[in-house]
Nucleic acid binder design. Structure first.
Lengths: 330, 330
DNA sequence: AGAAATACGTGAAACATTTCACGCCGAAGG
DNA sequence: CCTTCGGCGTGAAATGTTTCACGTATTTCT
């Protein structure tokens, strides 16, 4: 007995169903075909356990139903949530997700792009801060939170508006001595605008503020601790509101303040940015500017997979919202 | 002028270099070939910007250098960190990562497996709690934290040992009235053994304990709040140590306790499980049993890609460690 | 009822690679 | 110097699809 050990192919299905090869192909591509034929094919395929070979298909069509995701990390709660929403949005459109984690290393990022070209993904959604990254204009690319050039669509939260919102909120809650704490080095991303928006409002309202940022890798969080200590006299902090560039930073600062004997939000109010809420614990919340993660993902996918590639937007800003979370008085 | 708009193929490289097709193939597969030939091929390929077409290659070889990751989510800090380590471990071995997020939905999980079969990934690393999941014995599969059957290797943390460690620690810190708080419904995973280990030690040491768990979806966290309230009399809690099945749960419980006027760790000590430390804030830490995430990932990858598939281990337990984090008195 | 038009199933060609039997050339042995 | 053997480059076959020109059968119009 001649045992067919190999997985069944279209040819086998065609033989089993007594139809032509092309007919089987049409059935699996949803191309109209006589009902009786369709039925016989479906039946034969089921009987043989036939599965389309995506690699043969990809070879012919040059389309792979795969999108590559290039992210700095997925263990950061914001990136993790974003990756998840992107993956779900893609699967809703029957696309698979190829994941690349770069650690924000420029070489790794560039190599990922090369690998994607080679692997012939249908497109890339990238969150990269590498200023010199070369993207292939032929390969559909959507950048999140980072503007490249008019030819490369960028989807971002309204960081400027978010910064303004934070300042407005703190001021309307009675703060008159503000500070902006900025984590990480200066990057090419849109996220830098958070501080710009914050400063705009402070100036417009005539409220005093200072900007503290970490530039160097070595400085670490001590910069903020030192700053805070320098602003405490007689056990009293001469700041009453701090806007942090990130929720994670806000939580860290909250811990620092409590160590330094300052009460949050009684003595000083804190607003973060991102809207990470899956921590579960009340103690891990902070008042924040919430990024619309699901919308960011959905929009990125929609733009990437848009049929008409002639009229792509170059920048899409999605609205953010303020959410109280225990580090403000309200 | 005849413009070649298509991407270059091996045939083009062969023509450019003046060698045969097979020779070009050998060069790109690291099959020994005369040095002069190799050089001409490399040069021609560089000149034409040739990239191997992975889909044609996959068609011939049935190998794709791709591994599928099936996870409940990546926005959970533990799963996110695991996904990241897996992705990095795979890329170290020149494998790509195909990401599937299931939300622990059994249908989605099963469909992912079907899709993977169709997409001909070289293997699957899965974290699924679906008891009825059918895995294809032909397709290499490694399960994390969930034992299927002797034929399916499972990599897990030493959950039993972790539970024991937690109990020992709490007892040696002076606790005499313990409780185990268990989040989520009963699942097929190895994680259930955390409670078993905890109970073993409590019984062996003759320390009283209770087990509280959420079975129903609807019950939610109120179960724990109600339990705690029921155990407070005259403002004093008659428990002095709680082991939570998860760090996230521990942080939630910590918040609840503080709301209820109990001090952590002065009045009651708390130990979690997982070892999530990237939250940044002190307030978001808890004492915990740390899972070796990077090792879990590396081990899973090593087993999945092991050449000799005849002698696969059926269960590998990796050691956990206790780490203090502010919710215990030490 | 006959001819033209329409609808639709057919199967060969093409996609870019890997593999392998073949044959060429040079080296080694007698 | 002739023969044999081994090493290595060669190119055709094969992989499983999709596509498209083709031909057959059925329908429709007069």
């Amino acid at each position: 007995m001649k045992q067919k050990s190999t997985t069944p192919t279209m040819k086998d299905v065609a033989r089993e169903a007594g139809v032509a090869l092309g007919t089987v192909s049409k059935v699996f591509n949803n191309i109209p075909v006589g009902e009786s034929y369709r039925q016989r094919v479906v039946e034969a395929a089921g009987k043989l356990g036939y599965q389309v070979n995506q690699y043969a298909r990809g070879l012919k069509t040059n389309r792979t139903n795969t999108v590559a995701l290039i992210l700095p990390s997925v263990d950061h709660p914001f990136f993790g949530a974003l990756a998840q929403q992107l993956c779900l949005a893609l699967s809703r459109r029957s696309y698979r997700t190829l994941l690349y984690v770069t650690g924000s290393n420029p070489e790794v990022e560039q190599q990922c792009i090369r690998m994607v070209q080679q692997n012939k993904a249908d497109g890339i959604i990238g969150l990269t801060y590498n200023p010199g990254l070369e993207v292939d204009e032929a390969l559909p690319f959507v950048s999140i939170d980072r503007y490249f050039s008019p030819g490369v669509p960028c989807v971002a939260s309204d960081n400027l508006g978010g910064g303004r919102l934070a300042a407005e909120r703190l001021i309307s809650l009675g703060c008159r001595h503000l500070a902006f704490f900025r984590n990480g080095p200066i990057q090419a991303g849109e996220a830098d605008k958070r501080g710009d928006g914050f400063e705009q409002i402070c100036r417009a309202r005539g409220v005093s503020y200072e900007v503290i940022r970490i530039n160097d890798e070595e400085q670490s969080l001590e910069v903020f601790r030192d700053y805070l200590i320098g602003h405490i006299s007689n056990g009293k902090l001469d700041l009453d509101g701090i806007f942090c560039s990130t929720d994670l930073l806000a939580l860290t600062i909250r811990g620092m303040l409590e160590e330094l004997g300052q009460r949050v939000p009684e003595d000083v109010q804190l607003v973060g940015f991102d809207g990470i809420r899956q921590f579960g614990s009340e103690g891990c919340y902070c008042s924040t500017i919430v990024q619309p993660i699901a919308q960011l993902a959905q929009t990125s996918v929609d733009i990437l997979l848009q049929e008409d590639r002639s009229a792509l937007p170059s920048l899409i800003c999605l609205p953010v919202a303020y959410a109280a979370g225990g580090t403000t008085r309200e």
